[in-house]
């Protein structure tokens, strides 16, 4: 059975470059863009999955990190675009159009935000945790809307996609390759992390916190570290998402965005490394196909989601692999 799931994971994962490659041959650049979108949303959900799947922390505020990553890109690139230094006092810091620098800033900024939010939120648990993360997300959302310096609700447009050494990122397939590589690296790292002593302890803390405490580990610390890594990955995805659209706006902070990340994880299959990837791909395909069927296509999305939650608890991968519950 495990082998069967492994095959399914590989197939789902390889379907992304396969679709992108086929689209390249057929000269359908928009399909490549869709595949890139799916990969980026998958990356954001992979980040959340560390907190949610492994750590059992249902965060309804991960859009905060997604948005911070997006604004890291937007703010740096807009300063580079207008040749106005970001900070111009005793030290001069210029904006930048370099993707690696932007990614670094996005990861660090969202990690710090996750540290602050996590340190406060993890004092609570259960429903309180869901609600306080939601509240922090809303705080960022309203702040972004009413903060005039970077466009407020209008958002920020970046006219040209940022640069990566050796690539022309405006060519859809090259940008896709870049995003896909990052997704693959992060998935690999997540797989290693889950199997590491840290990952095992985190998983144990989710199942039985007292037992973890008796062996001398602090569940709070384990969870906080997981929450910070999780936020940083989602932040990185936010920077890529902003670059895909060449645009960033407060809608990246909205609570529906946080809800969608959770939807990806559950659609794909909770507690599975490749679950978010499968879920994000499925969601993008559904969104793309159903919106042509009816003006009221969200009804169908709701119905499908409801059916998955009620009757197909293993999600897409679980259903295909024939196992309801993942590794535990």
């Amino acid at each position: 059975m495990i082998r069967r799931e492994g095959i399914i994971n590989t197939l789902i994962f390889l379907s992304l470059p396969a679709v992108a490659g086929a689209a390249l041959l057929l000269d359908e650049p928009f399909t490549i863009t869709l595949a890139t979108r799916a990969a980026i949303l998958a990356l954001a959900a992979v980040g959340l999955n560390l907190a949610l799947g492994l750590g059992g922390l249902v965060s309804l505020g991960h859009a905060a990190f997604f948005g911070i990553g997006g604004y890291a890109m937007g703010i740096l690139a807009s300063h580079a675009q207008s040749y106005v230094p970001l900070i111009d006092t005793w030290i001069v810091i210029e904006g930048t159009k370099s993707m690696p620098v932007i990614w670094l800033v996005a990861v660090i900024a969202s990690a710090f935000a996750a540290l602050a939010i996590g340190a406060l939120s993890l004092r609570t648990s259960g429903v309180y945790f869901i609600m306080i993360t939601l509240a922090f997300g809303q705080m960022f959302y309203y702040f972004a809307i009413s903060w005039p310096a970077y466009g407020g609700e209008d958002g920020l447009s970046i006219y040209v996609r940022n640069d990566f050494p050796g690539l022309n990122t405006l060519v859809p397939i090259q940008f896709f390759g870049l995003v896909f590589t990052i997704l693959a690296l992060v998935l690999w790292a997540m797989g290693r992390l889950a199997a590491s002593p840290f990952g095992l302890a985190l998983n144990a803390a989710r199942q039985n916190a007292e037992r973890v405490e008796t062996v001398g580990l602090t569940p709070f610390r384990l969870r906080l570290v997981a929450f910070v890594i999780s936020g940083a990955i989602t932040g990185l995805a936010g920077a890529l998402f902003a670059d895909l659209n060449r645009f960033v706006s407060p809608s990246m902070f909205s609570w529906q965005m946080s809800g969608e990340f959770i939807v990806f994880i559950v659609l794909g299959g909770i507690g599975r490394l490749f679950g978010p990837v499968a879920g994000a791909c499925l969601f993008v395909v559904l969104e793309h196909m159903l919106s042509g069927v009816s003006e009221f296509w969200l009804i169908y999305v709701g119905a499908i989601l409801l059916l998955v939650v009620l009757f197909a608890r293993g999600g897409l991968i679980g259903t295909l692999a024939g196992r309801a519950v993942a590794h535990d």
Partner: peptide, 21 residues
């Protein structure tokens, strides 16, 4: 004719699609 759901990111992608594809 496409629906942007009032979401900027959806609108940008639809625009890319309309122009590119």
């Amino acid at each position: 004719i496409e629906d942007d759901q009032r979401k900027p990111d959806i609108a940008v992608q639809l625009a890319d699609k309309m122009i590119q594809s």
